[in-house]
Structure formats: C-alpha cells, structure tokens
Simulated scan of single mutants.
Amino acid sequence: MPRIRVEVDGTAYEDDVEPRLLLVHYLRDRLGKVGTPVGCDTTNCGACTVLMDGLSVKSCSVLAVQADGRDITTVEGLGGDHPMQRAFHEDHALQCGYCTPGMILASIDLLRDNADPSDGEIREGLEGNLCRCTGYQNIVRAVRRAADEMRRPADQRPAGQEVAP
C-alpha cells in the first residue's frame, strides 16, 4: 500500500492509502474534513473543489496518492473568517450550501489569477462549479466584494481580517 505525506489545512499527515482512493474520500473519511462534500463523483459539479498547492482541483478526480507531498486547503482551512467566506455570507451567495465550499475555493483560485475580474470573467471562471439554488447573481456579487477587500492593503482592512491562502 502506498504511503503518502500531505499537509492539509496546515497539519502534516502521513498515511498508507489504497492506490485508487480518491482525495475527496481521504479528506472526508480519513481526516474528517467533511466540509468537502461528495457531489457527483464525476467532476461535473465542483462541490468537492479544494486547493492543492494553491490551485483549485476537484478532489473527486484526484487520487490521494497524487496529493503526496502537496499542500491541500479545504474550506475548514480558511478558518471561517476569510474575505471570500464573509462575502458569501454578507451577499447571501448560498441557499442550501452544498456547492458553497467548492464555490469559495474556486473563487479564491480565480482571484489568484485575476484580482479584479469582471462579472463575465467571474462567471467564466466558475463555470465548472454548479449551483442549483442561487441563480449565481449573489455568487458573482460576493466574489466581486471579496476581490475588492482582498485588493485593499492590509493596513486598510478591519483588524483581524487577514487574507489566506
């Protein structure tokens, strides 16, 4: 059985894993990171999106062995006070919440590449993540709000509101 070493949400793990174990199942079943939902298991919905070395990946399409030596960030790793999480809350960018972890992490990756996206660029950047409830208007608004906040210099943000990762 292959042995992997992975850092998840700032904590190092070393585990033996089945060669065909999907990263989403490793995160949920082995590490208890249940904030990463299993959606479609076919990469269509994006609910299971996590950041791997800062890039968004659908964890149902990545084997745990492929994460060996990588840094994984789940929605739990954001700590509940990331600007994107606050923006999703403040702009009511969720209803049932099932897609929200993947949307948040995909949005963070989007802003890594484009700090000031247009509404069209946000929609295009998130097209691999599906939401059946919201109609996307508030999601786009939330990403714009978070982008504005994340572009502000650290000394102009409210105390305790760091931008990570």
Rank of each mutant, 00 (worst) to 15 (best):
H82Y: 03
A87Y: 10
D91E: 14
H92Y: 13
A93G: 12
A93N: 03
L94T: 10
Q95G: 01
G97N: 05
G97A: 09
Y98F: 15
Y98G: 10
Y98L: 13
C99K: 07
T100F: 03
T100Q: 01
T100W: 01
T100H: 00
P101T: 08
P101Q: 01
G102A: 02
G102P: 13
M103K: 03
M103A: 09
L105V: 10
L105Y: 03
A106G: 02
A106H: 11
S107V: 04
D109K: 00
L110G: 03
L111P: 07
D113I: 01
D113V: 03
A115F: 06
A115E: 07
A115M: 04
A115N: 02
P117W: 04
S118P: 01
S118Y: 02
D119S: 14
D119M: 08
G120K: 05
G120N: 09
I122C: 04
I122E: 02
R123P: 05
R123F: 14
E124F: 03
L126D: 02
G128E: 08
G128S: 10
L130Y: 06
C131E: 08
C133W: 03
G135K: 03
G135F: 11
Q137I: 15
N138H: 15
I139N: 09
I139M: 11
V140T: 14
R141K: 15
R141N: 14
V143F: 09
V143I: 06
A146S: 13
D148H: 12
D148Q: 13
R151K: 14
